[in-house]
Design a binder for these strands. Sequence first.
DNA 1: CGGTTATGTAACATATGAAGTTACATGAAA
DNA 2: TTTCATGTAACTTCATATGTTACATAACCG
Lengths: 152, 152
Amino acid sequence: MKQDSRLSGVLHVLLHMAQQPGSFTSETLAKAMDTNPVVIRRIMAGLRDLGYVRSEKGHGGGWTLACDLTKVTLRDVYTALGSPALLAMGNRTEAPGCLVEQAVNAALDQAFGDAQALLLSRFGEVTLAMLGDDLRKRLGSRKLQGMSAHGA
Amino acid sequence: MKQDSRLSGVLHVLLHMAQQPGSFTSETLAKAMDTNPVVIRRIMAGLRDLGYVRSEKGHGGGWTLACDLTKVTLRDVYTALGSPALLAMGNRTEAPGCLVEQAVNAALDQAFGDAQALLLSRFGEVTLAMLGDDLRKRLGSRKLQGMSAHGA
DNA sequence: CGGTTATGTAACATATGAAGTTACATGAAA
DNA sequence: TTTCATGTAACTTCATATGTTACATAACCG
């Protein structure tokens, strides 16, 4: 299965923005992420709608953080993306008349449900501020070697 | 993300086979699963290689169970399929030079790893025999109403 | 033997959805 | 009013599960 990397992507953007105040254009962010400005706008749209970031047009415009990083969790970000599927596997048929299929679905759904719940729970425990702290730690040890945030 | 339903499918096949002794052609199984015989052969290939089922050509040929259902778990079946991806989400870049990306990956990998481990652990707790027991229970209550395994 | 029935597998078609791209409308600031 | 930025639709590209066709291989049957 091809994997969805939007959560990873949008977190990367947010963390980049958190490194310095001010606004960032989609183009700037796209360059840092080695992707296309439209992709940035796309993955940021949900965050904007929920008020986690603001966007402004015209000169000096761009994206700005508009939330308390200690309050927003990975789960909030995930929700802002539209809560895409977490699991790569699913049941062959969702409402089967076949009892065999029902038995299989019941067993798999149990496991799938547990894994999803755990994942969402973990997401809910991590705030953007925590990611920032972790990043600062990494930056610290790198700076001693004279490296920038973007490394090699 | 489109979801992979091979595990669901192969379990369905195995459970069908467990309902009565003897061999089953790919065509028979395909009809019960409402799919194509080649698809059956494809998802069964790994199980055959690991000895969980046998296949025979020619007249009277087909697929037969060749394992102790109380010993084979959903995890074994999953492995026989080639251990396909469990999660629909992944990191944007796997070995990033960017420290921001590293921080994001670290956080996500933690959650992803936990969820995967839980899923595999759950799979390991469920044997094919347990699925069969559950199915028999469902068949029992259905039979009282005069319904067959394939319901409506 | 030759015919029938089955699996084994390659090759190709289809469908889905994320990611990337192009094009253009909208709006804000210089 | 020109420039710069987002907003968004439409399209292409890519990966991959699924479906299908075609044919080789092997077992059994007469």
